[in-house]
Design a protein around this nucleic acid. Sequence first.
DNA 1: GCGTTTCCGCGAAGCGCTTCGACGATAACG
DNA 2: CGTTATCGTCGAAGCGCTTCGCGGAAACGC
Lengths: 356, 356
Amino acid sequence: MAKINEVAEAAGVSISTVSYALSGKRPISPDTRRRIEEAVRTLGYSPNAGARMLAGSRTQIFALTEPLRKDTHAPTHMAFVLATAVAARRNDYDILLLTDEDAKAGMGRVAANGLVDAILVLDVAPDDERVQLARGITTPTIFIGVPDDHEGLICVDLDFAAATALAVDRLADAGHTTIGMIGHPDVSYEKSNFPPRVRAAFEARARERGLETDFGLSGTKRTSRSETRRTVARLLEAGATGFVLHCTEEAHAVALADLAERGLGIPDDISIVSVGASFDAGAFPTPLDSIPLVPQASCDLAVELALRSLGDDRPEPGLRLIAPMYVSRGSVTVARKASESDSPPLRTSAPREGLL
Amino acid sequence: MAKINEVAEAAGVSISTVSYALSGKRPISPDTRRRIEEAVRTLGYSPNAGARMLAGSRTQIFALTEPLRKDTHAPTHMAFVLATAVAARRNDYDILLLTDEDAKAGMGRVAANGLVDAILVLDVAPDDERVQLARGITTPTIFIGVPDDHEGLICVDLDFAAATALAVDRLADAGHTTIGMIGHPDVSYEKSNFPPRVRAAFEARARERGLETDFGLSGTKRTSRSETRRTVARLLEAGATGFVLHCTEEAHAVALADLAERGLGIPDDISIVSVGASFDAGAFPTPLDSIPLVPQASCDLAVELALRSLGDDRPEPGLRLIAPMYVSRGSVTVARKASESDSPPLRTSAPREGLL
DNA sequence: GCGTTTCCGCGAAGCGCTTCGACGATAACG
DNA sequence: CGTTATCGTCGAAGCGCTTCGCGGAAACGC
C-alpha cells in the first residue's frame, strides 16, 4: 500500500507530477515519466480508491441492479451479468451488485452517497418499480430491457418485435400458412418484459401476412416437460407446419425430442426458427435457424451509454433497439403442399407430470 | 447531495457533532440528536461514500470473486450470490463483483487499491488459482468452498463428507446392502471442489459399512438425459436398492421419471436420499429425503467471518464445516429381502442422445 | 538580444468525512 | 466549598488523491 508521496520521493518529483504522469492529463517529459513508472513498479503502487473518489469526480463503479427473483431464468441471467461485468472492466469500471430488496432500495442509496457513477438495470419487469426510482435520481441509469412505461428513460435491448417479425416472415416466405409459437412459461409473461413483446409481434405479423397462428406455453412457473409436449401436440393439431420457439433451452430440447419421437423431421415436416435465445441454437442434434439474443450486444451498448452519460455528449433518452440477425442453419424449408403431405401422426402419448 | 456541513448548520452544531451523532461513537444529548436527525431528514443527507472510505478505515464493500465459468451451474450459483449479497447488506456491506478473468486479477487490484474490506471467494476449484493470490495479500479472504490446498486459509462449507456418510448410514441402517450414486456431470469432478469429496466419502463410508457400491455420472459437460438414464440402468443392473443422488435438479427429475417408467416405486423398490442439493428435494412428485446444501448457512457464516476479520477477534485460519441436516420425507425404507423381491424389470429402452 | 511562447514541473487548495484532544459546564465527592 | 469526574460539544488535523494556477527554463521570432 505505497502512497503517491512515496512514489514522488522515489522518482524525485512532486506529487502532482506523479498524478499527471499516471493520468496523462498533462504532458510529462519522457525521462521523468520513465522514472515515475519505475518507482510505481518497484513500490507496487496502486492509487487508493477512496481518495480518488473523493478528489476526482469519478468512482469507477457502476451499480448493477438485479432483483434475482425466484422466476429469474438463471443461465440467461448469468450471461447478462457476465457480459456486463466484462464490458465494464474493459472500460476500467467495477460492478457493484444490488439484489433482492436492495435492487430497488440500493439504487436510491448508491445514488445518494455517490458510490457509483451510473446504474445499469437488469431483469426488467413490465411494471418495474425501478422506473419511478430512476426518474427521481440524477445518477445516469440505463435499462437493459424495456419496461412498459419507458418515457424519458434510456433503454437498450434486442428488437424483439423485429426479430419475431423476421422469423414469421421467413416461415411465410417459405410458404407456411399455419404457424405456431412455443412460448416461455406463463410467469414470464407477467414478470419479464420481453416475452409479451414477442408474443404480440408474432400475432401481429402473422396477421399482416395472412397466416393462421397458434400459441402455447412451455410451463407455468418454470419450464415443464409435460406442458411443453402438450403445446407441441396442440400446435400440430392446429396444423402448424412452422414453429417459432421462444422458450428456454430445456423447452427447445423437449420440443425437438417430441417431434423426433413422432417421426416428424426438421425441416422436412416442420420448419423451426428459434427467437431470442441466449444459448446456442446450433448445438441441438438438429441445428436450428435462430435469431439470437446476444447479451454482449446489449451490455456493451449499455456500458457505452453509461460512459457517455458521464461525459459531454450525453445520450438522449429513448429506446436503443438492436437489429435482429438471422442465423440460417437449415431448419426452415418450403412448406409441402397439403396434397403431398401425409397427415402428421398425432399419436398422443399421455405426458407425465412434473419437471422436465 | 447535501453535505455534512449543511447538516451541521441546519442543526446549529459543529460538523464533528453531526458525525458523532450519526455514528454513535460518542454520547450526544437527546435534544441535539433530535435536531440533527431532523436536519438529516429534511436535507436528505447521505454521507459521501468516497469521503468515508478515505477518512474512516472501512469501505463497507466486500468483493465477491466468481469466475462464472461455462460449466458453472447457474441456478446453484445464483442462490449463493443472492445469499451472500443479502447477508452482506444485513451488515451494511455492498458487494463488488469480480468475474471472468477479473475474478483472479481483480482480487489483486481491489486488495491493492483498498476498494474492499474483505474478499469472498465463490465457485472454488480444487486447484484454484485464487488460493495463491489470497496468501499474497493482506485483505482478509474467505473461501466459500474448500480447495485441495487450503492451508492457512479460512474456508466455509457444508460438511459434504459427513453429509454423504449420513446418507450412506441411513441406507445401511435400513438394510440396503448394495447402493448406488448418481453423480454430477463429469466436468464437475475436475472443476468444482465438492463433488469429488462426496464421491470419496460415499465409497469410504460404504466400505466401512460393508456395502457394495456403484457410481455413475449424470452427464459429461452438463446434465444429459441419456447419460442419467444410462446410469440409472447401470445402478439397477448392479443390484442397487438404495440411491444417493448428488446431481442437478434436472438429473434428479430424469432419474425419478425413469424409475417411475420402469414401474419401480419409491421407497418400496428403491430408497433414495438426495445429498448436497441447493434446490427443494421435497418438490418432486415423490418427495425425497434430503441432506440439503443451504447457501444461506455458508454465506451467513462467511460474511460473519469476514466481519470478524476486520475487528479484534480475528478468526483462526482453518475449515469451518457446517454440520449436515437430514430431512426425512419418506423416500427411504427398509430393504426388501432378496427372497421377497421380484427381480427388478430391467427393460432397457434405447436412450436418445442430446439434452435432457 | 530581448520579448514572447512553449514546455514541464511544483505548490497548495480542496474533495467530505472521521477522530483526537481539548474545553467549558455540570455533577459527584470528601 | 474546593477538587475531581463526567458529559456534551467543538476545532482542527488529517485520510490520499486531483487539479488549478504559477513560474523557471528552454526554444522561438524578428
